[in-house]
């Protein structure tokens, strides 16, 4: 009894950093488990990813077949096929589409409950999203890649650093994509209804992220401008170029470094937007 009484005034023997890391880990776990319950939707979504993989792969291979030197935009057939199938696998890991949770919570007013929690909304939602991405990586990444490997000759990465770089690139892409979606959803704090910005995001992110075709097919100036001026190519194009070894080792690593910069910028922007919105809520007394 004495011991317990004595320990009350000290807050915790665990360091604050470890405490918040534990909280973050728990939130990731809850995000993971939440998606694990949608088993049937996972199966249906995987099937759809595979069908679109076939469609895109055949079209790009047909382009390669008749292109000059059979290397459109610097990819050979095996690299293009790998590009398409890894892309189909990553699509739900990155999670470009369909996340309107924040906008919905803002519109319904439930966001007030999130503001009361001792963890910042950006951090809380990020942890949940990482859990979602982890679940998608374990369930939705493999099947399209397997289907692609069975029906098409895929490029096999040759450099030792390619797979580790790809792993880092995917994590960064998940973070960047989360940050972008957060900012897009957060427009609901100002607009009554965030459907407009979400539509624009859905549209732009797929095409300019490199889902439909490699951005290298654009004129070079356009591709470079997109990479440097927007976070969009960092969503899919970068991880896919990394795994397909489209570029030399230096540029391969450089693209991932650029992603890291974008991850910091986008998260900082999300935090800024959230703080502005909270101040606005306080001022309005809403």
């Amino acid at each position: 009894m004495d011991q317990r009484d004595a320990s009350v005034p000290t807050i915790s023997r665990i360091s604050p950093f470890r405490a918040s890391a534990t909280t973050f880990g728990a939130l990731i776990g809850s995000g993971f488990r939440r998606y694990a319950t949608y088993r049937q939707a996972t199966i249906a979504g995987t099937f759809t990813n595979i069908v679109f993989g076939f469609l895109r792969c055949y079209v790009l291979l047909a382009v390669a077949e008749e292109a000059v030197g059979q290397r459109p935009a610097g990819y050979d057939a095996g690299q293009l096929a790998l590009y398409v199938w890894v892309g189909q696998g990553l699509l739900s890991v990155i999670g470009i589409w369909g996340w309107t949770e924040l906008a919905d919570r803002i519109r319904s007013g439930d966001i007030a409950a999130d503001l009361l929690r001792p963890i910042a909304p950006v951090t809380g939602f990020l942890a949940a999203d990482l859990g979602r991405a982890l679940h998608a990586m374990m369930t939705r990444f493999g099947p399209p890649l397997l289907a692609g490997a069975v029906f098409f000759p895929l490029h096999t990465p040759a450099r030792w650093q390619t797979v580790p770089l790809f792993a880092v690139s995917v994590i960064l892409a998940v973070i960047i994509c989360f940050g972008c979606r957060y900012v897009v959803n957060a427009t609901a704090y100002w607009l009554q209804d965030a459907r407009g910005p979400i539509t624009l995001w859905t549209l732009g992110s797929g095409v300019l992220g490199g889902l439909y075709f490699p951005l290298r097919l654009f004129p070079q100036e356009v591709a470079v401008a997109l990479w440097v001026a927007t976070p969009l190519p960092s969503l899919l194009q970068t991880p896919l170029d990394v795994i397909a070894e489209r570029d030399g080792p230096a540029l391969q690593a450089g693209l991932v470094a650029l992603q890291a910069v974008w991850a910091v910028v986008v998260l900082a922007l999300a935090g800024l937007v959230q703080r502005r919105a909270e101040r606005r809520l306080v001022v309005q007394g809403g």
């Binding site: 008749e66 549209l203 095409v207 075709f213 654009f218």
Partner: peptide
Amino acid sequence: VELFGNMGATVFDVVTVLVLFRAT
């Protein structure tokens, strides 16, 4: 925004075809 955004989706389908034909 949705009205024009949705048109954008069809625009991109056509742009994709044009972009692919740049290479071949």
